[in-house]
Design a protein around this nucleic acid. Structure first.
Lengths: 192, 192
DNA sequence: ACGAGCCTACCTAGTGATAGGTAGGATGCG
DNA sequence: CGCATCCTACCTATCACTAGGTAGGCTCGT
């Protein structure tokens, strides 16, 4: 069985969604990529919405694991954020947008269930980032006057947005430095 | 004539593209909103790609005018950036994503001509922001050690990304503060 | 008379989804 | 064991519907 058709479908659907968006890929596209007939997809995923939901579920679960691992392996806030930004940069270099950036751009046309998951995804990231920032402040790595949640929002927004811009301009060489600049700001002493 | 069907089509197409994305709105949707038949749209815009191009053209032209006006009316870099961020926040409160954020999310499925325009749009903004940052440094408003282009990229990315996240979470109350925090960073003295 | 603007009616090529069938492996039972 | 039954995974063929686009005709202001 090795990989399994279902997983293959999810994997290919993910790359399609992360390059074209959800509305702009079809069961026909997916079937061609995986090498089965269109109707056979319905055996694994009766509806496209179901496929979409499973897609985000997997993406979210993978991220949860990865984020937990970062907390485990790195104790410095700056190092944690560097690895975090690496997730975005790596997949972007592989030609993939962040899934939830792609999806939230067409949120109004998305099934309710998927919209909800996108929110959940962002909340998860904001919570994780908030934790990292909080610890960073406690350790003295970051300035004490930072609003934790606001800083987390800034970091997430910056990475999502930078992915978008870099993707459109086909230039992935400057993201890391851009993000690093923002992180550096967090550790400087306020002038006022 | 008052407004003109063509302009009405462009206006409604814009709101559709900025909520659903380009792929996920149809001539049928557009026709219903404007109150004419589907086929009549083809009189004004023979192809959807043509409509898309005209759409971005108008959006880009409007922004060009608005950005020039900001330079004219405000001389402080911080004030200029505040108004700039206001453009994003205002349209977001009106329920609209930044057009090019929505479009670049589905870039791989976009006609080449539109993809090119999206790049042009981002370049325009980066150039404008670079100018503002440069002036801000020259005036002593911002730190002298800033990389101008990199800072411009950061500001643009932050606003595009923040729009995305705020849109997905349906929470537009914190963007201004988030952006202001980033701008504040630019004027503080470096610790190292 | 002419053309801009809009219409009805239609086209082809898709869309996601369904019906019904086939091949092969697992399971249960006398 | 043999045999029936079920299940998974895929197939072909088709559904109703929508996509963007076309052809040709009506109406109205100039």
């Amino acid at each position: 069985m090795s990989i399994g058709t279902r997983d293959l479908l999810l994997k290919e659907a993910e790359t399609l969604a992360r390059t074209r968006g959800y509305a702009a890929f079809s069961y026909a596209d997916l079937a061609k990529r995986v090498g089965i007939r269109k109707a056979s997809i319905h055996h694994h995923f009766p509806t496209k919405e179901g496929l979409g939901v499973a897609l985000i579920d997997g993406y979210l679960a993978d991220f949860k694991v990865a984020l937990a691992k970062v907390l485990e392996e790195e104790s410095s806030a700056k190092a944690r954020l560097a690895i975090y930004s690496g997730f975005f940069v790596d997949s972007l270099r592989g030609g993939l947008m962040p899934l939830c950036a792609a999806l939230s751009a067409e949120a109004a046309a998305l099934p309710e269930s998927m919209r909800l998951q996108v929110s959940t995804f962002f909340e998860l990231h904001l919570d994780w980032l908030s934790g990292v920032v909080r610890d960073g402040i406690a350790d003295g790595e970051f300035r004490a006057d930072l609003d934790v949640r606001q800083t987390a929002t800034m970091l997430l927004s910056l990475l999502e947005g930078a992915s978008l811009v870099a993707w459109a301009l086909k230039d992935t060489t400057h993201i890391e430095a851009t993000f690093a600049q923002a992180v550096a700001c967090l550790s400087e002493t306020a002038s006022s």
